[in-house]
Nucleic acid binder design. Structure first.
Length: 155
RNA sequence: GCAGCCGGACGGUCUGCCGCUGGCGACUCUACGGGGUCGAAAGAGGAAAGUCCGGGCAGCACAGGGCAUCCCACUUCCUAAUGUAGAAGCAGUCCGCGAGGGUUGAGUAAUGCAGAAGAAAAUAACAACUGCCUUCGGGCAGAAAUGGUGAGAAGGUGAGGUAAGAGCUCACCAGCGGCGCGGUGACGUGUCGGCUGUGCAUCUUGGGAGCUGCAAGUUCAUGUAAACCACCCGACAGAGGGUAGCCCGUCCGAGUUGACGAAGGUCUGAGCAGCAAUGCAACAGGGCCGGGGCUCAUGCGGUGGAGGGUAGAACGCUUGAGCCAUGGGGCGACUCAUGGAGUAGAUAAAUGGCAGACGCGCGCUUCGGUGCGUACAGAACCCGGCUUACAGACCGACUGCUUUC
RNA sequence: GGAAGUAUGGGUGAGCGGUUGAAACCAGCACACUGCUAACGUGCCGAGCCGUAAGGUUCCGAAGGUUCGAAUCCUUCUGCUUCCG
């Protein structure tokens, strides 16, 4: 299969409940310079069974494996133009590198919620964002495997 | 040629690959709500910004009048627009050699205030001046010419006049009023007249103002939902509402429309609630009772309180006081007629990424090229105006300096 | 998106257009007290610039304006805070 480079609106994280949970604390976060990444596992729930029926024409049909949000604080980046540009760069970098996470999540029984928060004052180039995005996604997928092994102990 | 000033109009272009958003068409899945794939077109501004004004639009409130409160104020015009809005002007003042630019602008009859300084801040006499009296200390009277203070000192300058002086008189100038002329008008100008403090507030005159804002608001879904708690209430009347600024008379008045009417009434049943059957519809219903009275508190209604729920969805939402062209009117803002083109609508929020070519500016240059840069800034209901930010570049009118004829 | 408020010494925070460049508290410096320190008490500097000093001058977020006179009134910007489902 060719690497899926689409990024539809359904992959956006828009639920207020999930977002509040994500930022409430206790979730893993890491810094990759222009960004800080917060992520959380979301268990597949009962309504996923109905999803399974739809899911036969590809995972695009049902709920996506990963949903993300991008946030750029107004305090760091003053102008709306620059905030929009920062979000676009992050989204584009995620779009091109999302296959890393999707491969890691193949066959797992949970989904992921990710938040990218900008922690820089100056606009970086696309190359810088792309590079750190790749690194960060690889690190996350490594961590997932570690957590999967250690999860039964902690719970 | 250089520098400037005003007005208008613009603010990058093209190609390839990978994406995003809403609609359209085809195919497809479906729990019939909608989802997926493919296709060809569309997808930020002159300021989208600030939110400083004005409107449209929406909800709530509201018979009417007066007072109070708040806002506005040169003139004429334009507009949907009532505005420290816009256009064209007028007057004062400041800046500029100038083209021009900034800013202020109803009235002053009455009342009040004006720190410090100064004799005195408006019925003016401190010093000096003049006259008279004198016990030589000074006193009385005249007088706004002199003094310094101050933002402002009793119109200014000069001459005459006088005991000394004074618009007391005259000439010129500034201001005010009457008349003539010009202008729609603010005002300008000529002439005549009397002789005239500054600022602020109250005040006077004229005009205007209900409140909240698309997170307005509407519909659907979810919810035991016509859910729960408290209070009010049914005509011998007045709790209350209009009216949480006050007053006057007046009106409504216990879910509700219209007509007659002023009666503890009559007629209609158009209305309201509910999926429906049906229920309610200006003193309904039940119990006791011969009747009145008394008691109970179910349903409907009103007000307040305390809660629950949402990945909530849809509408509002983009055709509008809109845009462009030509012609007519106007100095202009603008307006009239005719014709034409016409999908941005997101909602943790689309309009992007990469690569290359061109254009423009600056630097280097062996004039072949080459390096760097390419502004301010991102729709959120929609318009009009203002303000602020802005690389570059175009058109037109005008000004100053310089050169040539 | 819409609607309000606020900015004054190093910090908090009063302030009628007129003695205000600044009330008050904290902080700082000096003195006094103490064996030494803290606290209490007294006084001073209050922020820049010029000056040895006396003193002069500029400042109430920034820039314009009104006024004889502005921290205060008006306009435009800047920062911060709050509210509206």
């Amino acid at each position: 299969m060719i690497v899926n480079c689409q990024f539809k609106k359904s992959e956006r994280l828009t639920s207020q409940l999930v977002i509040e949970k994500l930022f409430a604390g206790g979730n893993a976060s890491m810094a990759a310079f222009p960004l800080r990444i917060v992520f959380m596992k979301v268990e597949k729930e009962g309504n996923d069974e109905s999803e399974g029926n739809c899911g036969k024409n590809g995972n695009l049909g049902g709920k996506p494996l990963v949903s993300i949000l991008v946030s750029v604080p107004k305090k760091r980046v003053r102008h709306a133009v620059d905030r929009n540009r920062m979000k676009r760069l992050v989204r584009e970098a995620y779009r091109l590198n999302k296959y890393i996470l999707w491969e890691a999540l193949e066959g797992k029984d949970y989904r992921l919620a990710l938040a990218f928060v900008c922690i820089t004052d100056t606009l970086p180039t696309f190359y810088a964002v792309n590079k750190s995005m790749k690194k960060a996604l690889i690190r996350i997928s490594e961590k997932l495997d570690v957590n999967a092994n250690s999860n039964p102990d902690s719970q």
